[in-house]
């Protein structure tokens, strides 16, 4: 038995990443939700069913042709157990029909110089492979080099469309909610500067980094208008910003509420899950579960909660898995 191992190519790009992504209409100006999806999804999340039709090396090309015809597919992996030895495509079948060797075993004519994908790579990398090679599909292997499935461009399109539909539905729902929730609460005058207290709530949408930080900047503006000491305004704004980013990148979405009374400013960040398993760990400097995409945006270094603790006069956090997390920071106006 041959000891063939398929090649696992990790590059092959002849053009810059930016140029390749631009061919797909993806650039720095693309909506952040698209960029995030391309990074968040891995090949194993979106590839076709693992019940792939396959043949062994001893099967004939005629059997391959019949399987491909009956199942309306254009290529077959040649396997022994979970080990990939080659691929038979329409090209080999046409050549066999022309040359009259349809009854030869697949191993004599199959493609053995294969480009395969690893199941853990992000979809953004897989897209580059589709660009750099002319193949319509790639076999996918796991870390043990075992065959686990086939990835086609159609799989990527379907997965992205499905997820985008879901994200857009959520965004539309949240936008309507935001309009309602940003109204001044009952019995509170419409202007921010009022005698006793005022409250305002902002809705924060999951992964909407394009808008993250807007609430904190608005809170800063409101406090300045209300005549709050500039040093306190800065501390509140820093905490509000960190909490807003946290809810945006780590949670399923939530809200940021600010309450100003005669003695203090209170910031309440509340999210809808998934909750933090180890709150003490999460509050330490440098601990984070952020992915590379979030880090590339300048966040996710694990400083958020500890920064809030540093600037706030009181800091409280409560988290329940999977219900969600609530953080309350208070700032004394007399400080």
């Amino acid at each position: 038995m041959s000891d063939y191992q398929p090649k696992i190519l990790s590059g092959g790009e002849h053009r810059s990443d930016d140029e390749i992504m631009a061919d797909y209409g993806v650039s720095e100006d693309s909506p952040l939700v698209i960029m995030e999806l391309l990074q968040r999804f891995h090949v194993k999340d979106i590839m076709r069913s693992r019940n792939i039709i396959s043949l062994t090396r001893e099967n004939t090309l005629r059997e391959a042709k019949e399987l491909m015809r009956d199942n309306k597919i254009s290529g077959l992996p040649i396997l022994e157990g979970k080990r990939l030895f080659g691929m038979v495509s329409m090209n080999q079948i046409i050549k066999a029909l022309e040359g009259g060797w349809l009854d030869d075993p697949c191993q004599q004519h199959m493609s053995t110089s294969l480009v395969v994908l690893e199941e853990d790579i992000p979809v953004s990398i897989a897209l580059k492979y589709f660009h750099n090679y002319t193949f319509g599909r790639f076999p996918v292997l796991n870390k043990e080099h075992e065959f686990v499935g086939i990835l086609s461009q159609r799989d990527i399109t379907s997965a992205l469309l499905k997820e985008l539909t879901s994200e857009i539905s959520k965004l539309e729902g949240k936008t309507e909610a935001a309009v309602v929730e940003q109204r001044p609460v009952e019995n509170v005058k419409s202007e921010w500067v009022i005698p006793y207290y005022s409250l305002r709530q902002f809705v924060i949408v999951r992964n909407d980094l394009a808008n993250a930080g807007k609430a904190a900047n608005e809170i800063k503006r409101m406090l300045k208008e209300a005549g709050v000491n500039s040093k306190i305004v800065r501390k509140v704004a820093v905490a509000a910003y960190e909490l807003e980013i946290n809810v945006c990148i780590h949670s399923l979405g939530g809200s940021l509420t600010i309450v100003l009374d005669t003695h203090k400013v209170t910031i309440i960040a509340k999210d809808n899950g998934p909750g933090i398993k180890d709150v003490d760990w999460a509050c330490q400097d440098g601990t984070s579960t952020a992915n590379d995409w979030i880090r590339s945006m300048g966040f996710g270094a694990g400083m958020g909660l500890s920064n809030c603790k540093r600037v706030a006069d009181t800091f409280n956090i409560k988290s329940v898995v999977p219900t969600g997390t609530t953080v309350i920071c208070e700032f004394n106006l007399s400080a």
């Binding site: 930080g213 807007k214 900047n217 800063k220 500039s230 800065r234 820093v238 910003y241 945006m297 300048g298």
Partner: peptide
Amino acid sequence: TSLASDQAVRTANIVG
């Protein structure tokens, strides 16, 4: 900064 994103400007505004 080399961070060419909205967040760089928003952060700058927070710290004045």
